[in-house]
């Protein structure tokens, strides 16, 4: 009897594995293997065509001691992430909170307005907005207001490049995290607020802090993962907007650096070393955020 049961269970499990298989095969082949392999490859000299040469810590030594552009890219990535991740996170949350207080028809409109940028691929427009001559919208507005006298080279002046990239990144950053928050707010049972009102909660700030935030913890965690990934691996905006490489490498992120070595110079060993460091950054910051959010409770 017992024997029969185990057999049945294995058969059941077999069915489970069969249904997992299509996803898992592609996931292991195209995500797990590349990520795991990047670790050994990081210790080699590898150009894809020839066999990888084991060179020990050489790649990492070069990265940290000889590659000044890499050191720059770490700085850029940190500045970039420290600004965009929290600002965008706060923005996602705040806008979702505000939207939730609107009537249903307006919610639809505002959600669409704030979410559309994350779908848009309109760098040409941003180039014209920040264009370095007086035909640029931003320059012309500033000149009309008398804030500047002559046009500013927003996209090539090394002082402004990173700032412009951050602005555009924030603009496109209201994505999955924003939707998760919007949904999280709508999912909260109104009876919680009614109960809160009885308990003496009197304004929307108190509602937010004592009722909403604790209930939204799962969404807070999900959105933080999304934010960390998108800010640490950003590079597309800079490449499309201020060119590659950007003036004086001012918008050169770690991602851009990896892209340069991996896809342009085919130095996969070096590129892998960069990616390993980037993954480490993401992993650590995710742990810190999780710790922080768990402590809040």
């Amino acid at each position: 009897m017992n024997f029969k049961k185990t057999f049945k269970e294995i058969r059941r499990s077999g069915e489970c594995y069969l249904m997992l298989a299509p996803f898992m095969i592609f996931f292991i082949l195209f995500t797990v293997i590349p990520v795991v392999m990047s670790v050994p490859v990081a210790f080699t000299d590898f150009n894809i065509v020839q066999k990888p040469d084991f060179i020990g810590l050489e790649n990492f030594r070069n990265l940290f001691l000889n590659d000044r552009i890499f050191m720059k890219s770490i700085r850029v990535t940190l500045i970039f992430s420290v600004v965009t991740a929290p600002v965008s996170y706060a923005l996602c949350f705040m806008l979702a909170w505000f939207i939730n207080q609107m009537p249903s028809a307006l919610r639809t409109v505002f959600t669409l307005v704030f979410y559309t940028p994350s779908m848009a691929n309109i760098y040409a427009v941003w180039q014209l907005i920040f264009s370095g001559d007086r035909y640029g919208y931003f320059n012309s507005v500033l000149m009309k207001l008398g804030i500047i006298v002559s046009p500013v080279q927003w996209l090539t002046d090394s002082r402004y490049v990173l700032g412009v990239v951050i602005v555009v990144q924030l603009w496109i950053s209201l994505g999955a995290g924003f939707l998760a928050f919007t949904a999280g707010f709508q999912n909260i049972d109104p009876s919680y607020y009614e109960a809160g009102a009885v308990e003496g909660i009197s304004n929307r700030w108190q509602e937010l802090i004592y009722i909403t935030l604790p209930l939204m913890k799962p969404q807070l965690l999900f959105a933080s993962v999304m934010q960390i990934v998108s800010s640490f691996t950003a590079g597309a905006v800079a490449q499309n907007l201020v060119g590659f490489p950007s003036t004086d490498y001012k918008a050169h992120t770690i991602m851009t650096h990896a892209y340069d070595y991996g896809w342009i110079r085919y130095e996969m060993g070096y590129a892998s070393a960069i990616c390993v460091i980037l993954f480490l950054f993401m992993y650590i910051s995710n742990m810190l955020v999780n710790k922080f959010l768990n402590q809040e409770q």
Binding site: F30, M37, S38, V229, A258, G262, S272
Partner: peptide, 13 residues
């Protein structure tokens, strides 16, 4: 966390 454009570079090989 590991679902991102970083992986594209590693996928190249």
């Amino acid at each position: 966390l590991y679902q991102s454009n970083v992986i594209y570079i590693m996928q190249y090989t």
